[in-house]
Design a protein around this nucleic acid. Structure first.
Lengths: 388, 388
DNA sequence: GCAGTTTTGTTCTTGGTGAGAACATAACAG
DNA sequence: CTGTTATGTTCTCACCAAGAACAAAACTGC
């Protein structure tokens, strides 16, 4: 239930709705369109926008006349408005970008890192190089579960229970950290293949399978912010022991580990990824053993998706990482095994399985989204409106 | 995002908040408490309550003085206010109850049925015998998935894709139907063991395992209203074929089917349930084979819960049906196998596994909740306020 | 090129909403 | 019986969005 509602809160509420409409729109919105969209009068829209312009949250530019009627204005990000910085912290590289209202991103800097917490200092320095007083919130994507939003477990870096506070320090701008797979899903829900889908799931397939349940455009975080480890459910009957400490994880049969294990390579990270790509390439070229490995992978993927669909009933499922390749090479296998895992009465209306459209930029895009969610939170908008 | 917000909507919004506070409170609320709870002034509270009394949604009665200060009034359901009827439609019996604002239930009638759609006519007649113009919405709990809220699949009655419209007909009062396991979970979240838990799960264990993910007190329904078939995920490596059309379902290893199968009985419904209860009793009395069956059941239950916790990260999990007995008899087994299924880093903070406290009344209570959710929907409250 | 049409912007009035201050009231405490 | 405390009540005020009326700026068709 929303918190207290006074007359003044009403104004903020509608201004946030307006800002969200602009931020989430696929194409630029005119002021008149926004009024219709929110169901408010043109006069009210003018007043709301006027204050938001004053607060440097929106800017009005003349819209080119597109037919009859008095020409209106386009609502665009204010040139001096707040910016979100987004960081995608990957296995041994990172990317920093600046994202304005509406989602337009500008790449700022990239770097490599040595897999130690020193990487965070380098990123902080990069942020410092590009930051201005327009920088409002930093969204940070990293792999691995992040318990309570603070304690990082990045297994491929050997980071276990690393406290975020020790990494970002007090000199950082306001920073929100979340899991990359979850953020990739959020990106698909807000700006990709899952836009407008009420109940959806996203899975990022790499060595591991991480994902998220997306309800009405929001990624679910669980009670301790560590929801989404779907790869660590025993969905395909594997008897192997997983690095996570459990036996039989789905991830052992789907993704890069499963592909490379078949070719005698040890599971792990790094160079294994190249081998996995090589196997996919050989499978596409007709190599029988590679093809069999990919078949098995796709089958296990489909089986697990079917099981999850029984439990969570998504309308659509999007995939990123190796999942995109698996869909490209073996859509029928995935769908057939998904159907086999679906309860019979569901098979007439199976979840759509689609490749994500945000692609590699998923974590970065999602990181920008959580940053913008914070910037557009009613309290923050209120402060900004009153501070102006 | 909430819909249009005008000044008038603000009033409704706060009145709904007030009604929900009264409805959801554990103990009766005074007007002054309600004002504090909602963060509104005493004057505003007086105005809101006054209109709600006018609309016969709330009634004020003098509260017995409990200390210093001018005595206030207790907010109670209006004696002529709306009522929800709740129906629990079970395997061969049904129960009809009347529930007032706040959740107080009055049993009205019970009956047996012949497992055919004629049962609905009998229930309709019972509703007619007790209905007055106070009856606002009927909440109906039945087992099996209900696709899109309309198409019923009740396997133990042999109902497949039975359209709700053919059952309830146009002469029914406004009726909302949902799955009994989901409604039992909703009841726990609103009035039971899961009250106040942000992320929780509930499972009802009978022959099958049905359940629901509960987020902030709301049961998740999925894209086609058929979420919650957690029992039909292959979480325990069974190789058996399930009646649902899939192989390896969790339900085959947990619940009454798994118990009776061990004793040579065929899986199914009806008399099998008595045998399952008998096995539990013998296990409690020390019968070795019964104990082994119960052990296996508890282990499989725990294993599945651990897997689901990896994916969905609930703070607490409540159980009903046989789950209550399994917790009573084998809590350690469940918890140990749950921990084994949890990723290692989660084991320090496992989900609490608790017996539901609403008990047998779960589906009925949940059915009343969805009915009251409808009655307290802003549009409906608005109509009632303006109609008065 | 001009009059009519269409869409939007702008201005002003109005009904409604919650906040806040001041005061009244009804209990309890000593 | 007086002071304290919590609540009810009344009144004013700032604010909000709606709606009507009018103005403005484009296009259309003759």
């Amino acid at each position: 239930m929303p918190q207290t509602m006074t007359s003044a809160d009403l104004r903020i509420h509608n201004q946030v709705r307006l800002l969200r409409a602009v931020h989430g729109a696929a194409a630029p919105v005119t002021r008149a369109e926004a009024a219709r969209l929110l169901g408010i009068g043109r006069n009210t829209a003018a007043a709301l926008v006027g204050e938001l312009e004053q607060a440097r949250l929106l800017h009005e530019v003349p819209a080119e006349a597109g037919g009859r009627g008095r020409p209106t204005t386009l609502l665009v990000p204010h040139p001096e408005g707040p910016l979100a910085f987004a960081v995608d912290f990957r296995e041994d590289t990172w990317t920093l970008a600046s994202v304005e209202l509406g989602g337009a991103a500008t790449g700022l800097e990239e770097g490599e890192h040595d897999r130690t917490p020193r990487a965070f200092a380098a990123i902080r320095a990069a942020i410092g190089r590009h930051a201005s007083d327009r920088l409002a919130v930093v969204g940070f994507a990293t792999s691995g579960p992040i318990r309570d939003g603070r304690r990082l477990h990045i297994s491929h870096l050997g980071w276990d229970e690393v406290d975020l506070g020790d990494l970002v320090g007090p000199d950082w701008p306001a920073t929100l950290v979340d899991n990359d797979a979850r953020l990739a899903g959020l990106a698909e829900a807000r700006r990709g293949a899952l836009r407008g889908v009420g109940t959806a799931m996203h899975f990022h397939i790499d060595f591991d399978i991480g994902g998220t349940l997306l309800l009405h455009g929001d990624a679910q975080r669980g009670g301790h912010n560590i929801a989404g480890e779907f790869g660590h459910m025993p969905l395909t009957g594997s008897g192997l022991e997983c690095m996570c400490g459990v036996r039989g994880c789905w991830s052992l049969d789907v993704g890069a580990n499963a592909l490379v294990r078949r070719f005698g390579a040890r599971p792990g990270y790094g160079e294994g990824r190249a081998l996995a790509r090589e196997i996919l390439r050989r499978a596409a070229d007709g190599d029988a053993e590679a093809a069999a490995a990919v078949d098995a992978n796709a089958a296990a993927l489909g089986r697990g998706l079917g099981a999850l669909a029984n439990a969570l009933d998504p309308e659509a499922i999007s995939l990123s990482g190796l999942g995109v390749d698996l869909i490209r090479l073996r859509r029928e296998v995935i769908e057939a095994h998904c159907a086999a895992g679906l309860m019979a009465f569901r098979r007439g209306e199976p979840p759509r399985i689609v490749a994500g459209t945000v692609g590699e930029a998923g974590p970065l895009t999602g990181a920008a989204e959580i940053a913008w969610d914070a910037i557009l939170a009613p309290d923050r908008v209120k402060d900004r409106l009153q501070g102006a």
